[in-house]
Design a protein around this nucleic acid. Structure first.
Lengths: 127, 127
DNA sequence: TCTTACCTTTACGTCAACGTAAGGTACGGT
DNA sequence: ACCGTACCTTACGTTGACGTAAAGGTAAGA
């Protein structure tokens, strides 16, 4: 029972993306798969990172920013100053996400309102 | 007291964007300002639309999709079939937004968890 | 009258995030 | 011996969303 690994093709189909995209992310330093000869072998760590990347993309973040964030998860630094810096960084990231959630909730509310109006119109047609 | 209007420069500074961006959106048919000679005059409608566009962008949507959505707000169709079609469309849009919110909440939870760990590490350094 | 501050159009440039083709390697099956 | 499949690299192409210069019009104020 040794730890599971994945090929690039498996990851691509698992997360519904493309080989090209995964290779591109490696090129950008976001993924660092092991190699057997030339073939990539992905371990759990890179699988998780890929998941984080794709989620970040769905949320509309650029790869640079995503890279910054997922690297925060890597190395909790050992030095106090660095730790405080990291914590401050986390704060601003969270603020960004909270702003985004406000946007999202507003958009949802407006959609609901629109649907209500549509249903009213639809009901009005029956009279 | 006639209804308020805005110049392109006012809108740009109000929403912290650029003239170029606003003109680009007009080019794409997302905005349709009135003209006085060659100069654009924006009314409340386009101001709202610009707000919606920029919010959509912050949420990571492409302009095509944004165009589709804000046009839904325009013309509640008068025909029953069309109305039902629109309602169905609203459903799928909402589903997308809800997925996005799940992503967002997960990301927030992980950030919180990371911060907790950092604070623990920081406290551990004091011993 | 001249400057400043707006606005305009046209058009080429740019950057991120891949897509896509060309050509090669390696392995399992028939 | 050959085929199909999955992997690889290199490198040019594409698309969306603007940026940025060039060249100019208009109206208010010194």
């Amino acid at each position: 029972m040794r730890p599971p690994t994945w090929t690039i093709g498996e990851l691509a189909s698992d997360f519904d993306t493309t080989l090209r995209t995964i290779r591109f992310y490696e090129d950008k330093g976001l993924l660092t798969p092991e190699r057997q000869g030339t073939t990539r072998i992905f371990h759990a760590r890179d699988r998780v990172r890929l998941q984080l990347i794709l989620r970040g993309k769905r949320l509309g973040f650029a790869l640079d920013e995503i890279a910054h964030v997922i690297n925060m998860y890597d190395n909790p630094p050992g030095e106090a100053g660095q730790l405080e810096f990291l914590i401050a960084d986390i704060q601003t990231r969270r603020d960004h996400l909270l702003e985004k959630r406000r946007d999202l909730d507003e958009a949802l509310a407006e959609l609901d309102e629109l649907e209500r109006r549509c249903r009213d119109d639809l009901a009005g047609l029956g009279l």
